[in-house]
Amino acid sequence: MPSISVAEVKPGSKVSKDVITPLGGTLFTKGKILLPRDMEILEAFLIRQVDIEGAEEDAKVLEAPVTPSKGDAKTGTASAASSLTRSNSNLHEEYDKMLTLIRSCYNSASAAILPIYDLRSALEGLIAHIKDYHVLNFAPRALNEQDYIYHNAVLSALTSYKIAQWCGYPQKEWLQVAFAGLLHDIGNAKIDSSILQKPEPLTITERNEVRRHTTYGYQILRNVTAINEGVRLAALQHHEKIDGSGYPLRLQGSQIHLYAKIVAVADIFHAMTLERIYKKAQSPYLVLEEIQKEGFGKLDPSIVQTFVYKTTELHNGTKIRLIDGRQGEIIFSDRSNPTRPLVSVEGRIINLAHSRNLYIKEIIS
C-alpha cells in the first residue's frame, strides 16, 4: 500500500518503510505493527504520511497488546519485582561497603598509604553488580549531603567503568578506569574541610586552594602500586578542557589522558545531580543537556555523545516526574533528541522536544 495520511492509518497496520522524524531520527522501523498509542506518537511528531503494507486484516490480531489475566500479571510482576529487589540489594550492599572504605581513605590519605588492595577488592565486588547499575536512576540508600564527596567518588567509579565499556575500550582497561573515577578527587583529603563544606561562595584564595586538589591528588597517588599512570593523571587532569581553558596545566586535546576525559564526564554528571551543602541537585536530563553543550570544545565529543546516547537508551516505560510535579512514563525516546523523549502524562502524550518549558525532574522507577 502506498503512503497514506496518518488520519487514515488504523491500529494493526504494518509499516512498510522506516518512519523518520523531522529531525532525522527513526521513529518506527519497517515491519512495525502499529498499536493504538502509536497513533498519538505519530501525531506528536507531526508525521503526516506513513507507508503501510498489506491488507489490514493480516494485522488485526495485533491491534492491541495481549493483556494477561490478573493472576498471571500479579505473579509475573511479583516475581520480577522480587528479582529486581535482590539485585538492587546486592548492588547497594557493595556500594555501602565501598562508601565506608573510601571515606576511611579520605580521612587517612594525608598520613597513611592508601590500602590499595582493599580498595581493589571492594571495587571488584561492586563492579560484579554493574549490570544492575543504571546511571540515570540509581540512588544510594542513604544520601547525606555531608558525604557528597564520597558518593561522587563511588558513583564516578561506576559510571567511568560503564563509559569505558560503552566506548569499546579494551576490557583490561575497565577496572583501571573505575579506579580513576574512584580516586579522581582524593586530593580533596588535603583541603581544609571548612572550605569544602562552606555554604557561602568561596573567596579567590579559597577557590585557588580547592583547585590544588588536582596536584595534591597526583602527589598522593604518585607512589601507589597496583594502579597505572592513567589513574594518577586522571586525578591531575580531570578538570582540564579540550580547548585549553581548564586547570591546573591548561592542557589541550590529545595532551589530556583518556582516563581523565572519561572521568571528567562522570564527575560533572554526578557533581550536578547530587545534593550538596551549597548546591541543590539538578535534573539528570537537564544535566545531560549541559554535558552535551560542554561537548563543544570543553569535553571529548565522542565520549559525551556515547554517554548521552547510552544513558537514555532503553528507558521506555520508565516512571518519571516532570518539573511541574506531574507523574508519567517515558513511552518513546527519539535518538536524535535523547534528553527529550515522549512522555505519557495523565492520559496525554507530551513531546518534550516541543514543550521546552517542561523537562524530566527525576526518575521515579
Results as ranks from 00 to 15, higher is better:
Gly325Thr: 06
Val287His: 09
Val265Thr: 13
Arg276Met: 09
Glu313His: 13
Gln305Phe: 09
Met272Gly: 00
Ile242Val: 14
Leu288Phe: 07
Ile256Trp: 07
Val263Met: 05
Gly347Arg: 08
Ser283Tyr: 06
Ser245Asn: 13
Ile277Tyr: 00
Phe269Val: 07
Gly347Ser: 07
Val231Met: 04
Leu258His: 10
Glu229Ala: 05
Asn316Thr: 14
Arg232Ala: 13
Arg250Trp: 07
Phe307Gly: 02
Gly317Ala: 05
Asp267Lys: 04
Ser344Val: 02
His239Met: 12
Glu329Lys: 13
Gln305Thr: 13
Arg335Glu: 14
Lys298Tyr: 04
Arg326Phe: 01
Gln282Met: 15
Val308Phe: 04
Tyr278Gly: 05
Thr318Lys: 13
Ser344Arg: 13
Lys310Thr: 05
Lys241Leu: 05
Glu290Gly: 01
Ile323Cys: 13
Glu346Tyr: 05
Thr318Gln: 12
Leu251Phe: 10
Glu313Trp: 11
Ile331Ala: 05
Asp324Glu: 10
Gln237Phe: 06
Leu258Glu: 12
Asp334Leu: 10
Gly317Tyr: 02
Ser333Arg: 12
Arg321Pro: 01
Val345Arg: 14
Pro301Cys: 04
Lys319Asp: 06
Leu342Arg: 08
Thr312Leu: 09
Ser336Arg: 06
Thr318Met: 14
Ala260Val: 06
Pro248Thr: 10
Gln327Ile: 07
Gly317Val: 05
Tyr259Lys: 05
Arg340Thr: 13
Leu299Thr: 02
Thr273Gln: 03
Arg335Ser: 14
Thr318Phe: 11
Thr318Asn: 05
Gln252Lys: 15
Ile291Lys: 08
Lys310Leu: 04
Arg276His: 09
Gly297His: 00
Leu322Met: 11
Thr339Asp: 03
Phe307Pro: 01
Ser283Pro: 12
His238Phe: 10
Leu249Lys: 15
Ile303Cys: 06
Asn337Glu: 11
Gln292Ala: 00
Lys241Asp: 06
Phe269Met: 06
Ile291Arg: 09
Ile320Tyr: 07
Ile256Gly: 08
Gln252Tyr: 07
Lys293Pro: 00
Phe307Ala: 02
Arg232Asn: 01
Pro284Phe: 05
Lys261Arg: 15
Ala271Gly: 15
Glu346Gly: 14
Glu290Ala: 09
Thr318Gly: 03
Ser344Leu: 15
Leu342Gly: 10
Asp324Pro: 06
Arg250Phe: 13
Asp334Glu: 14
Asp243Met: 11
His257Leu: 00
Ile277Asp: 03
Leu299Gly: 02
Leu342Thr: 09
His238Cys: 06
Ala264Val: 04
Tyr259Val: 02
Phe269Gly: 08
Gly317Lys: 02
Ile242His: 02
Arg276Leu: 01
Leu286Phe: 12
Val231Arg: 03
Leu342Ala: 14
Val263Asp: 04
Asp267Cys: 05
Phe296Ile: 12
Asp300Thr: 03
Gly328Val: 01
Glu275Gly: 00
Glu275Trp: 01
His270Ile: 00
Arg321Cys: 12
Leu251Cys: 08
His257Asp: 15
Leu322Pro: 08
